[in-house]
Structures are given as C-alpha cells and as structure tokens.
Write a protein that binds this DNA or RNA. Structure first.
Length: 493
RNA sequence: GACCCCAUCGUCUAGUGGCCUAGGACGCAUGGUUCUCAUCCAUGUAACAGGGGUUCGACUCCCCUUGGGGUCGCCA
C-alpha cells in the first residue's frame, strides 16, 4: 500500500444535527476528526446541521457544544449553523435549476409511497421514477404559481460512481439505483445531501471523516459535486459503534448520549481513551492514551473496518483507572456535586459544608479524607455517595446478623463488642489515629487467632456495610466519640 | 427485497505469506496479599466462519458460500 500523504492545510469538520443529545457515535466521529486535524496541523470545524426545522431544537445544539467542550474536542472554526446560511444554498440551487440539472417535482407523498411499495414488491431498489423530469417549463411555472407543493430533485446521471475511501479502499456504486434524489424542499429549504456538499465546499473541507452509515450518501454527494463542478473531498468512513447485539448503537442498548455518561461520573479522559480504541488501535500493546498521545499516535490507516461493540465493562475499567490516577483533591472536587445532589451535604458560601443529617460543619478536607478511602474502589463518580454515606449519617442502618463474623454466635458477638468498647475507650483522643488503632487492634485480633472475629464486627459497626474500606482508617476519620457511639449502637440490637 | 460494507478469543484488538505452538487488554476463573470489598501481583480460560484455489508455505492473496451490519425519506 502506498504511503498516505495529506495536504498541508487539512480541514475537517463534524456536522451534527441538533435533533438529540450528543450521541456517543458522533462524539467518536468528532474525536477522530479532531485527532486527524491535530495530527496534520489542520483545522477542525463545527457545523450544526439544522436544516430540519421541525426536529431541530436549540437545547440539543447547546448540549452538543457543551459535551464537545467537556470532552476537550475544541473546534477551530464555528459553530456554523446551516439555518443561517440559506442564501448560499439558494444560489447553487438556482444554478442547478437553470442548468436543468435539477427540477421541480410535484408528486405527492402518497404517489411516492405507492411507487416505493410497488418497486419493493417486484424486488427492485426503491427509487424515484423521474416522472416529473420532463415537465415543460410552462407547466412547472403554472403549477408553481398555483402554489402546488413541490420539491427540488437532482437529475441523477446514470453512471458508475467510484471513490477511494481512506479506510476501505475502492467503493463502487451504480448511480442508476439511486433515483433522482430530493435536494431541497424549496429554494430556501435545502435538504441534507445538498447542504452538505455546498457547506463542505464553502468551508474548504478536504477530508470528510464520518460514520459508515454515510457510505450510501457519498455517491449522491459526489454526483452533486460533479454537477456543480466543485472539488471532491477525500472520504474516510468510520466503522459503526455497535450494541451487544451487533446492531448500530441506539437508545435501546445503553445510554447513548455523552451527557448520560457524564452524569454517571465517567471522566472525559476515560471517554476519550475508550472511544479512541473503538475502531482504532496503534498496533502496539499500549492501551492508555491521553489526548496528546492520541494526537501523536493517531493514523487513519489504522482505523478498523468492522464495527465495534460498545463494551461497558471496558469503559468502567478505563474510568476506574483514570479515577485512581486523579490527584485526590481534584477527585474530591469532581465528587462534590454528587454529595450535594444526594442531599448528604450542603455547601456554605465560605467553602465549608454542612452535613445535613447531623448539622455538623466540615471543611473540604473532610471530603478529601473520606473520598480518599474509596479512590481505588470507584468505577464511576456517581457510586461514591452510596459507598461513603455512613460518614454523613447520625445513625447507620444495617442488619444485626451482618455484624457476625462467619458463624459467630450472639454471645460471641456481645463479647467482641464489649471488648472493642473497652479497648477503644482506653485510647487517648490524640492517639486515636489509624496507625495506633491498627497497632493496638491487630495485636488484640491476633490473640483470638482469627483477625476477622474482631475486625469484621468493628468494621460493620462503623460502616454498616459488608464491603467497605478498612476499620482503622474509617475509625480515624469518624473520631473517637462517633466510633464509640456506633459500637454502642451495635450493642443495642 | 435491492445495493454497499464487513468477518481473529464473549468483547476491543495485534497480525500486511514463513518470526503463530496466533500476542495484548477487558471480562471470567483460580491463587497470593487481606476482616470484607477494591487495588496490586501471579496463573489460567478462550479465536483465525466454512469450502475451494494461488503458493514450497496461508490468519494473511483470489473466488464462492455462510453469517453480520448499513442504506434505500419532502431526516440527518
């Protein structure tokens, strides 16, 4: 294979339509475009394709921008909105009409549907028959003047359209199977395949990197380019992201919007790392990539051809990895909103926090300490509150049997708790720290010949959970008073 | 149905004709560390869809079959 050379001024774009929240598939396409641009010192352009007025909503446009920023996929130009560029399309539409390369079609939706059904029934690819192609100029003007509903169609030339895809190689399509495609509802309402061509040309886009689902649009767009005599960009079609059933990822599989993952507490660097490896890989055994290293190592030739199944377990693994890498105070900052949202704490203006249940005031360092205990256990940020809620409660709730280590009896448990109470109350306040507690309690636990028989009840009494951080570090953070309270509470069963 | 695309462990993938007894990672399993969970470490698990060619030699090249997917809008 010949080495791929890219022009000096690479210009790529991502062109989402604001008809839904930013989708994972689109985010990955954005990432690949971004990487390709950065790698080649090019420009990455954001264009919002909002020609469908009915379905486009500004709230979605806002989300797309917000999530792209969150992911760190900063664009160099834009966001451009197609709705603000209508006059540009009209010019080209007019040209095509004048040159008789496009025409008005007056067929009704019902007619079209019937035609489609018929073609399907005889085993042909459904496409427009070209019925209105030969309408006389007079008739067209008359019907237009009458206000008859029409649409502008492109006279699709019959030929073999061949293009070289950067990831797939040669792709060939017989355009006679396409039919005369609709390119605009009217002069001021262009349709996708037309608007894309004009915009990409107008914005000097020379590489179009997009999802595989656009392969079938490519010949249409090439034909329009040829009719307008405008240059053809290079194409690269990315493999699709699939659900576990290997169908295109959609709402019925997982969460599909970037915002959903963000809410659940996935880190942007994890999302980027994960998405990059979905359909691309550097050919080495490296698996962890920062954005910078991706830019360095990315190459379009290494993009996979087959679709890639979205694997949540892998995302969790990568996210857990990045959580463990985070400096603790940064992690605490990221976790903060989850505490507030779950009503564990409230924020005071001076950087202090109130524990809502106990009305105590704590500093940010308290959050840092507690979260620190769970940094290596966290797969996503949203899990933090249920893991450490016991630090923020007056009384904790759990089943008495949970206190028992293995097949411990009620009396054994009673003895252990009493022993714990005596030992712990004997420790001076200033010595009530992890190191001391561990020193003293381990000795005590070893005497029983089975550490669990002492440590397990202690840990459960403090946390109320069958899985948690260790008892010594929990005890230190809780402090002597609360520790004794919780031991007492355990005895009250 | 038509057209287009794709095909290595369950998943993401390495592999560009001999370095392949097919490598790595996730997952899973087992063991170690450990009161628990997690982390960490070790070990294991599991794949070239099938059939023809081409070749001294095919996971790698060609063809067919099979399987999967995408697209067929006055959506993008």
């Amino acid at each position: 294979m010949e080495e791929m050379k890219f022009t000096k001024d690479v210009r790529v774009r991502i062109a989402p339509s604001p008809t839904g929240f930013l989708h994972i598939g689109l985010a990955r396409a954005a990432l690949f475009n971004y990487l390709f641009a950065k790698k080649n010192n090019g420009k990455f352009i954001l264009r919002i394709e909002d020609t469908d007025l009915e379905r486009s909503k500004s709230e979605f446009g806002k989300d797309i921008i917000e999530q792209l920023e969150w992911l760190g996929l900063e664009w160099d130009e834009g966001p451009f909105k197609q709705s603000e560029r209508i006059s540009i399309y009209a010019k080209y539409l007019d040209k095509l009409l004048k040159e008789k390369k496009a025409y008005h079609c007056f067929c009704s939706k019902e007619e079209l549907e019937a035609e489609r059904q018929y073609q399907l029934s005889i085993g042909k690819a459904p496409c427009y028959s070209g019925k209105c192609r030969e309408l006389s100029e007079d008739e067209v003007q008359k019907r237009l003047a009458n206000g008859e509903r029409s649409v502008i169609r492109f006279k699709t030339p019959s030929k073999k359209v061949v293009f070289r895809d950067l990831v797939r190689g040669k792709i060939e399509v017989d355009s006679s199977l396409l039919g005369d495609i609709a390119i605009a509802k009217n002069l001021t309402a262009p349709l996708y395949n037309f608007a894309v061509v004009i915009d990409d040309f107008d914005m000097n886009i020379n590489y179009v990197i997009r999802g595989e689902d656009h392969i079938s649009n490519t010949p249409k767009q090439i034909l329009i380019q040829e009719a307008l005599d405008i240059p053809q960009p290079k194409y690269a079609h990315l493999p699709l992201i699939l659900g576990s059933d290997r169908a295109k990822l959609s709402k019925r599989h997982n969460a599909v919007s970037v915002a959903d993952y963000r809410k659940q507490g996935y880190l942007p660097e994890a999302m980027i790392n994960f998405m990059a490896l979905l359909g691309w890989n550097p050919g080495t055994e490296k698996e962890i990539f920062s954005m910078d290293s991706l830019i360095k190592e990315f190459s379009i030739e290494k993009v996979q051809k087959g679709g890639a199944v979205f694997n949540l377990q892998r995302l969790d693994f990568i996210n857990g990895f990045y959580i463990r890498q985070k400096p603790l105070d940064e992690l605490a900052k990221l976790c903060l909103p989850y505490f507030i949202e779950s009503k564990l704490i409230d924020e005071f203006s001076d950087g202090k926090y109130e524990i809502l249940e106990t009305r105590e005031t704590v500093g940010f360092d308290y959050l840092v300490k507690t979260i620190g205990l769970y940094q290596e256990r966290l797969k996503k940020l949203s899990e933090i509150t249920e893991l450490i809620d016991f630090f923020f409660k007056e009384k904790i709730d759990y089943d008495k049997d949970l206190l028992k280590w293995k097949d411990m009896s009620d009396t054994d448990l009673k003895i252990v708790l009493e022993k714990l109470e005596i030992i712990l109350s004997g420790i001076e306040l200033e010595e009530f720290n992890k190191e001391n507690l561990e020193k003293i309690l381990i000795i005590e636990a070893d005497k029983t010949g089975n550490r669990g028989s002492l440590l397990w009840p202690l840990r459960v009494a403090l946390s109320g959970k069958k899985a948690s951080a260790g008892p010594f570090e929990i005890a230190e953070i809780l402090g002597k008073e609360k520790v004794l309270q919780r031991i007492k509470h355990a005895q009250e069963f």
